[in-house]
Design a protein around this nucleic acid. Structure first.
Lengths: 118, 118
DNA sequence: TTTATATTTGAACAGTTGTTCATCTGTTTG
DNA sequence: CAAACAGATGAACAACTGTTCAAATATAAA
């Protein structure tokens, strides 16, 4: 039998390297949460909404007018943005004002823009 | 006629504010490129692949073995990762070794993980 | 209370996505 | 050359996504 021959499911990785590679993959719970979170940025309408909210909180109707879409469509998207904690909101009478939730959103948009501009 | 009354499609925004808000939305070309780019991160399999490639280049077969998936499924995903420039590759004989393309990928994964861990 | 306004919600539908399976291309070895 | 292997590709199908439309809430004003 060959000196270094061991049966593994891998073509090039040793078992030790496979252990390392596996450890650099985030835990299953994190993989799911991360992909769900980043998925939110993967839609043109949501990117536009996030862009519009960059400097100023806005109500649903005004976002709809800015993007030339129906309040219903915007509301559906805000629901996703809200549940993924990309935006927060406050009520004033009949009106709900939405704003970016935190700096992570800004950072990801900025890095993403850098990438696509290169 | 009221002093400050002007007909606008907006509920709260003045025309000047609407101009500002519209300017903070990236240009249409960038919105599309950015959402297409970030969409790539929005899938658990692709997040796992990117995780596995964090420290070390890997061939298709070994990625498939690590994730317990078929080489075909991995190849389809690598095609997307490649065309969005998240990974690069080099050939060695029959084997193709894939690696992360640049630091943007790392950054977005890190910021995303920070976000979902909070 | 009735009416109007701002937003949300749920069902429905077309369009998109990820995996499988069979097949094909490219490379090395005999 | 043919056989074997690594990976890519295209069609197909179920599962998912975003928008529309109609209807429901919630708040404010009459």
């Amino acid at each position: 039998m060959d000196q270094n021959e061991t049966i593994t499911p891998y073509q090039f990785l040793t078992e030790a390297e496979a252990v390392d590679a596996r450890q650099s993959i985030p835990a299953e719970r994190e993989v799911m949460a991360l992909s769900e979170f980043l998925k939110i940025f993967g839609d043109a309408t949501r990117v536009r909404i996030l862009g519009a909210l960059r400097d100023k909180e806005l109500c649903v109707g005004d976002i709809a007018a800015l993007l030339d879409m129906t309040p219903s469509a915007i509301s559906h998207q805000l629901k996703m943005l809200k549940s993924a904690k990309l935006v927060k909101y406050r009520r004033e009478g009949k009106t709900l004002f939405y704003a970016l939730a935190d700096e992570h959103v800004h950072s990801i948009m900025e890095i993403g823009l850098e990438h696509v501009r290169e």
